[in-house]
Design a protein around this nucleic acid. Structure first.
Length: 488
RNA sequence: GUCCCCAUCGUCCAGCGGCCUAGGACUCCACCCUUUCAAGGUGGCUACGCGGGUUCGAAUCCCGUUGGGGGCACCA
């Protein structure tokens, strides 16, 4: 038997981080088993449907390297892979359930159902459909209140439905007894419960990997498999990613719930992927926390998946991201940084030759100083900005460029003026000669005002390197300007 | 309310009856390095929710309790 797994996002907005989480585990398992990873779009909710969402799912998943073998965009033996295009596929199965007496029509209006539910809550009894329509013809039902012309199809749950199943991560699990679920909506679309079972079966899905939130719905699906005479797949219910307050991760409470957020912030896909693999999971050698997808996949084991929902902790992801950032070759880091610098308006698209040269020298300076790709802009702004737009940060100026520092700045400028070979070593030699040997200052004290004058901030890449980056002319101009500022 | 799932440092993870006076990582703190900031190095703080069992022995098994989470839609 060939393993086939699937991820099934619903195109209802920004792709959710949970989709990437499920995809990672699905794919790790599929690759290990030499099986297939199927992407199916579950767009049966036309009310919440958003046209641009599907493409975003593709983009973010591909960005992470979680590529699928079959899907709406690339086809496959079980096309179409979009549920909205499979309406005809579901119909005969509904007819069969109806014919076998495992399903029935229901004409209850939304208002009646709402009222029924409220009433049940008030009486503190379990909520669920009361089967008013069961066994009635259209005309019999029409005589009763709360009637709607277009019926839905409901599953007739028997007295003793199957409630337990074996889960790959949890072992034996028992779930709640379902009420009579709607299978086919008035708009002719199937509900998730019907569509997922029909599609998983027809598409040969062998392992259903989904979030823990689906455990309580699983009996509905088991029932459908049984009624339709189909073999059940294996289930693996993954723990739910959590907000810091332990609730299920949500876009409302957590920006990280949106997959596109990680791109915007400048996280590396390899870091995010590694991090997701660390949530609710560990390699057989748990001490190894930095690992590739291939390493995870090779040793993958459902038994090592946790049952506890992990809090999505940005601190650790930030550290991992920095780690991967530091391992990148310089030219690769530059390539990844470029879009962010362009977004900040610091570099032209495409970059000029001057900018290219400057960036090549600047990248090693920021590599150990950034945690996110977007952090490079602020650090390099002093060198990339148009000279006319350069300004010393007022707070830094007030704190560091105090009375008396004009002598230090002037001495630095004078010493740098004759430097012919403008590179880090010669700049530092001139600087140290004038300030440490000449003025008798400690390096830390001496560099502080110079740094603010040249870089415009108290925090910047190392000073001689920054000056080398900036060039002699601009460095001297900034020093002279600062002298005037302090003196005046 | 009801049903279900879960329970080790602040967070992520190790531990699947004795190797645990509980290990690693992140965060935090201190120190070292140091021209700022980082990075790097060294060290440190902090956890088996509680109560009963079972056992020679329990973080590990069982029960209860407490706490957290999820489901209970013509949403997925």
């Amino acid at each position: 038997m060939t393993v086939r797994v699937r991820v099934a996002p619903s195109p209802t907005g920004d792709p959710h981080v949970g989709t990437a989480y499920m995809s990672l585990f699905n794919l790790a398992f599929a690759r290990q088993q030499g099986g297939s990873f199927v992407l199916r779009v579950e767009d049966t909710d036309r009310a919440r449907f958003r046209a641009d969402s599907e493409q975003q799912v593709y983009d973010t998943l591909r960005w992470l390297g979680l590529d699928w073998d079959e899907g709406p965009d690339r086809g496959g033996p079980y096309a179409p892979y979009r549920q909205s295009e499979r309406l005809d596929t579901y119909r005969p199965h509904v007819e069969r359930l109806l014919a076998d007496g495992h399903a029935y029509h229901c004409w209850c209006s939304p208002e009646r159902l709402q009222q029924m539910r409220e009433d049940q809550q008030r009486r503190k009894v379990p909520t669920g459909y009361d089967r008013l329509c069961h066994g009635k013809s259209r005309d019999e039902r029409a005589a009763l209140p709360g009637f709607a012309e277009t019926p839905v199809v409901r599953l007739l749950v028997p007295e003793d439905p199957p409630l337990t199943f074996t889960d790959l991560v949890r072992g034996e699990v028992s779930a709640p007894r379902p009420d009579d679920q709607v299978l086919l909506k008035t708009d002719g679309f199937p509900t998730y419960h019907l569509a997922v079972v029909v599609d998983d079966h027809l598409m040969g899905i062998t392992h259903v990997v989904r979030g823990e939130e689906w455990i309580s719905s699983t009996p509905k699906h088991l029932l459908l498999y049984d009624f339709l005479g189909w073999e059940r797949p294996q289930f693996a219910h993954m723990p739910l990613l959590r907000n810091p307050d332990k609730s299920k991760i949500s876009k409302r409470k957590n920006p990280a719930a949106r997959l596109t957020w990680f791109l915007e912030e400048g996280y590396l896909p390899e870091a995010l992927l590694n991090f997701l693999g660390l949530l609710g999971y560990s390699l057989p050698d748990a001490e190894q926390e930095v690992f590739t997808f291939d390493e995870m996949s090779a040793s993958f084991d459902w038994g090592r998946v946790n049952t506890v929902g992990p809090v999505f902790d940005l601190d650790k992801l930030g550290w991992l991201n920095g780690h991967y950032l530091r391992e990148l070759p310089e030219d690769e880091l530059l390539a990844r940084l470029l879009p962010f610098l362009q977004r900040d308006g610091l570099v032209a698209d495409p970059p000029t030759a001057d900018q290219r040269a400057l960036l090549a020298a600047a990248v090693p300076l920021v590599q150990t100083r950034i945690a996110l790709l977007r952090d490079a802009g602020p650090l390099l702004r002093f060198a990339l900005v148009d000279e006319a737009e350069f300004a010393v940060d007022p707070a830094a100026a007030e704190k560091v460029l105090v009375a008396g520092t004009d002598d230090v700045l002037a001495a630095a400028a004078d010493a740098l003026e004759p430097v012919a070979q403008w590179d880090t070593e010669h700049v530092q030699a001139a600087l140290d000669g004038a300030l440490i040997d000449g003025l008798g200052l400690k390096r830390g004290k001496a560099y502080a005002p110079v740094r603010v004058a040249v870089c415009g901030a108290t925090v910047a890449p190392p000073l001689p390197e920054s000056m080398a980056l900036l060039g002699k002319e601009r460095t001297l101009a900034r020093l002279r300007a600062a002298v005037a500022l302090v003196a005046g």
